[in-house]
């Protein structure tokens, strides 16, 4: 499933589309602690988190996540939004809890 296919499901609000929506999503990853995400998030993952600050975007870029999904209505602050645009990171949002959002993506990946 590509990032675009995930967006097209209409489950999530699109905060920033990013530059590479044709990219394949490899796996779902969940964690809010940045250094754990940095160490464990696989390249090409869909990263589900409630941390919407600029450091989330830095980690997503450097660890090479395919898409960030902000769960629990977590907002992306102003600086983070600017960073997402500048770095071309795809950011989606939902009011669902982390597990529910992640499970939904996981099931779509394995469908």
């Amino acid at each position: 499933m590509t990032v675009k296919e995930l967006m097209d499901k209409g489950w999530f609000k699109v905060i920033n589309e990013g530059d590479d929506t044709e990219r394949d999503i490899e796996k779902v990853f969940c964690c809010d602690l940045l250094s754990i995400a940095m160490g464990k998030a696989p390249a090409g993952c869909a990263w589900v988190t409630v941390m919407g600050n600029i450091n989330t975007l830095a980690v997503a870029t450097l660890a090479d996540a395919a898409v960030v999904i902000l769960a629990e209505n977590a907002a992306l602050d102003e600086n983070a939004t600017a960073k997402a645009e500048q770095q071309g990171v795809c950011v989606l949002a939902t009011d669902m809890p982390i597990f529910d959002a992640a499970l939904m993506i996981h099931e779509a990946l394995n469908a």
Partner: peptide, 10 residues
């Protein structure tokens, strides 16, 4: 802010 896991140096 999400720091403090103690995983940076590792």
């Amino acid at each position: 802010l999400g720091f403090g896991a103690g995983m940076g140096l590792p």
